[in-house]
Design a protein around this nucleic acid. Structure first.
Lengths: 306, 306
DNA sequence: ATTTGCCCATCAGATTATATGATGGATATA
DNA sequence: TATATCCATCATATAATCTGATGGGCAAAT
């Protein structure tokens, strides 16, 4: 034995501290009391300090013993972390799964897929980050998320993507907005004078991307929810995912604009990961489920899949 | 054995990775090669993954092996940390010693004491933080320093202190400053109209302490060095520790002011620690040395000790 | 092609460490 | 006093690790 300190000694110390006596620890560890006694003596001998005051009926931890107990807990947690890593390698399952999802993506769909994932991998920690423009990609790049679900930009050598869905986008305005009263197709000339409510990128990733901007007068918002509120309040018009505005259209709070150009268009959504960090079993299962769901659930009529 | 993972297995893995082969690792660990081979097999069996690709002449670490190696290094460092803690408990020596020292304290004296400390405890890491007004006490409070050497304020229930020295303070001005030309004692009325160069507290600890401020016109500095430069440049007067200005006085760059009140006064310096964190052997030795040095070295004539 | 040096896996047996069960002493409670 | 529970120590059984021998393989030098 190269060095006499062992993880077993430390686990036994923790068991003694948590159970209150050597024999209780032995019962918990399914060992005889004398084995616990000997292991504690071996640990004291290895470290060269007294961990227990044995003047009472039951040995009491010394101050030194308490300090070492704390270190022991850290070390045993580290060992559990190493074991977890080995297990995830062996099973080809991620130790955890972090998703960065565009705020436009339909949450009901994602929740259904994540519920199934949780049933298959009950111990898998899952983080879901809802992000605005550019935020999801930023998370892939800084490794705070493993998978992204967002409108992906092409020509990215370090990122790999798969098309998952096309999000139907419609131009809408509040029912009491002047644009709602225009008869016939709305030309670009009419739109240019109206306020367009535009999403802005908190990051610098899409800073130069100005696709879809038609109006000369622009109000910018960093998140979809705030923009929707201003839309409903009649401040201007914008393109919105159909599934997010359908209830408001049906309740006549919003009106679809009949544009002369681009009346409806599709925003493609991809699942994206860093090429150096491909999805393992859990991630791959989630991706397959997302695609399957989009094929087999026609009630998501605003969605299209490959 | 409660659990088969051992620190010895992990140390052996590290030795193999660092030396390049099982037999080289065995030589480093003073073991036969077959013991290393068997230990690696036991580790692979314990974790359930292949750590080595054995198709070549020398086993090569797999990707999984590399990932586990990294975790192994963390864990072995944790074990070393626990051992260091046990050793410091056994020897009643601090694991490390951090000092927060007032910038006015004579560095030559402190260096001599620290040199002796280093000889007595060659493995003791030492940090010295030189601080302006209030900075040293802040470090004691936020536990970034264990001992402070500064002009201590009384009535601090959570801090304990010992008087170490009295620092002689003298009012000085640049030789070409108008104050240097005044004949006879300088009254308060004269001083009040001149710029006084004052140290200010970066922290809030002594924010309300304005002792020693006489002039109506005040320039504030956060550090002693900058203040000295402005003093030498003739911007104003101030009280300085004698040992810091003695060379300038002798070279006639600075002149001592003959004040009608308080011509010279003493700034008491204490060694301070948090009551909950008393000095152990190393700290106690340093304190004793500081006191002894101040008694036995009369060439530090600007210093007084208890 | 042969020789030399170095590498590793496996084996049998020696050595070391750990677990078990018995024993006796101590403490706390009824 | 009797009972229950605790621990340290001991002798022995069991398990784990180390050693040295053996044989196979690879790479470089002759």
């Amino acid at each position: 034995m190269l060095d006499r300190l062992t993880l077993d000694q430390l686990r036994t110390l923790i068991a003694v501290a948590d159970s209150g006596s050597f024999s209780a620890a032995g019962r918990n560890l399914r060992r005889v009391q004398s084995a616990v006694s000997q292991t504690m003596q071996a640990l004291e001998s290895t470290l060269g300090i007294a961990l227990f005051d044995r003047s009472g009926k039951v040995p009491a931890l010394t101050d030194a013993g308490k300090a070492i107990l704390e270190e022991a807990r850290k070390l045993v947690r580290g060992a559990e972390s190493l074991r977890a890593k080995a297990e995830s390698i062996a099973s080809d399952v991620e130790p955890e799964l972090s998703l960065a999802v565009d705020a436009m993506f339909p949450n009901r769909l994602l929740m259904a897929c994540l519920k199934r994932l949780s049933e298959e991998f009950p111990d898998l920690p899952v983080n879901v980050f809802t992000e605005g423009l550019g935020g999801a990609e930023q998370r892939i790049r800084d490794h705070t998320a493993r998978l992204g679900l967002y409108s992906w930009r092409p020509v990215q050598d370090d990122l790999a993507s798969e098309f998952v869905a096309a999000l139907t986008m419609v131009p809408v305005v509040a029912a009491d907005h002047p644009l709602a009263k225009v008869k016939g197709p709305i030309t670009r000339a009419i739109l240019e004078d109206q306020v367009q409510l535009v999403l802005t990128d908190r990051t610098q990733i899409t800073a130069r991307f100005s696709g879809g901007v038609i109006s000369r007068r622009i109000w910018r918002f960093a998140d979809l929810g705030t923009r929707l509120e201003y839309l409903l309040a009649g401040f201007g018009w914008c393109n919105m995912p159909l599934h997010l505005v359908e209830p408001h259209i049906e309740s006549r709070k919003l009106v679809t604009l009949a544009l002369a150009e681009n009346p409806r268009w599709e925003l493609p959504i991809h699942v994206v990961h860093d090429r150096a960090r491909p999805p393992q079993r859990a991630g791959r299962m989630l991706i397959e489920d997302l695609k399957k769901y989009l094929t087999t659930c026609p009630r998501h009529t605003s969605m299209k899949s490959a």
